[in-house]
Design a protein around this nucleic acid. Structure first.
Lengths: 226, 226
DNA sequence: GCTACTTCGAGTCACGATTACCAGAACCGG
DNA sequence: CCGGTTCTGGTAATCGTGACTCGAAGTAGC
């Protein structure tokens, strides 16, 4: 007999460590794909919104509180799961380095470099690949880097985020001009001291809103989602 | 007792008529929102892919065969439907004018101007709004206009599509240069005759693939989805 | 205290893309 | 044949981007 498809929510998480992108995965404790690494997630509850489910499962399984959370895609191919039809609504999230340090590796949670993952359960390798592509894409035209930085930051740190995500180096002077022209960051007036060179100015993002608004305010943004 | 959420697939369809965007809606024949206009769609079948469901329902309810079909978003807020929890995976589609003429208005299907819709069932007004935003966005950087045109077309027709979607006028000479520089269209060698002015050349798209590939080939494209 | 070294941050220059605008080409209708 | 329309190629000004230079402002070492 045919049952209704089961509805799951999973999340791809990215954070920056040592100028590289890392993503936390959880070990599956039951079949199918038992003991394989997989995206954190769980079943949709009847009285809980999709994004709320993603955030709750994130906290429960990895103890992470994301600064950015956005729906990525809905995967529903037949045959994704050997145990029956599963439709997964996948979100992607960014967390700050402080957060990532708090949520360290455990027996059932481990951080991997985003570009060197092991063989994951289900179609999760493909999903991370897509999330990575989207992150790179969005980094180019939005102020999403905010989600990977602290409240204040130097232009070198901001540039470091872009370089880590894009995988290239950027000219400091040109990056400065472009970043400041965008208008989304302003100098705090303070400078970072202690380094053995000219102390760089600290900046802050102007827009406090960071968590994605979904299609609600889509028309108010200059987004280029696919 | 709490039931599992019901899984639906709906599709926002766009076509061009008289240099304006139109979208077909279907009349609901049962509660809730009986007799209100709504997006065509249906329940997910256990042994059918999501995109396949969208295409099938499109054909069944509106007799339309889309030239472009892509997942838009997954809407799953609690309270979307007064009759219980419904999670809708929404697609958006483009159909050619010939197609749209074949599938004319009926008792339960009617075309509306996309920017002047009546009050729809559920949250469908918001969904169409989002799809419209995405269409406008994607039109700016991809060759999606193909989905609204016939196999061959003049540059004026292609320009008309962009003008209709963007809602502005474009300089013919500049548009020509930009369109040809893209490399995605080539002249067929033939010209359109019969008009009372200089006969324009006919063009054709080079890339035959038009239906969206989803996240499969995402990394191979220069897409800017959200 | 002086020098060496590093990064910061402002400036310049060349190049490609975009935009506004102009004018000849090519058709039809009267 | 002439007026009216659109098509199509061309030009000049403007803007954004990338490569590059150079003084500014700190620390570290001697």
């Amino acid at each position: 007999m045919d049952e209704q498809p089961q509805l799951a929510v999973s999340t791809v998480i990215f954070s920056l460590r040592d100028s590289e992108l890392w993503t936390p995965l959880v070990r599956r404790i039951r079949q199918p794909f038992r003991d394989r690494w997989a995206l954190p997630g769980g079943w949709v509850q009847p009285q809980e919104g999709l994004e709320a489910t993603a955030a709750r499962k994130l906290l429960e399984t990895t103890a992470l509180d994301p600064t950015y959370l956005e729906q990525l895609y809905c995967f529903g191919d037949i045959g994704r799961s050997p145990s029956g039809r599963v439709v997964s609504i996948v979100y992607w999230a960014l967390v700050r380095p402080e957060q990532a340090e708090l949520a360290s590796d455990g027996e059932n949670v481990r951080w991997f470099r985003a570009d060197a993952l092991p063989g994951l359960a289900f179609d999760h390798n493909r999903i991370v690949e897509y999330a990575l592509w989207r992150l790179r894409n969005k980094m180019a035209y939005s102020s999403i880097a905010h989600g990977l930085l602290g409240e204040t930051f130097t232009l070198a740190e901001l540039r470091g985020v872009h370089e880590a995500v894009r995988g290239t180096t950027l000219d400091p002077a040109n990056f400065r001009r472009q970043a400041l022209a965008g208008g989304s960051i302003v100098p705090t007036g303070e400078h970072l001291v202690g380094a053995s060179h000219r102390p760089p100015a600290l900046y802050r993002y102007t827009d406090a809103t960071l968590v994605d608004q979904g299609p609600l305010l889509a028309s108010a943004l200059t987004d280029r989602e696919d």
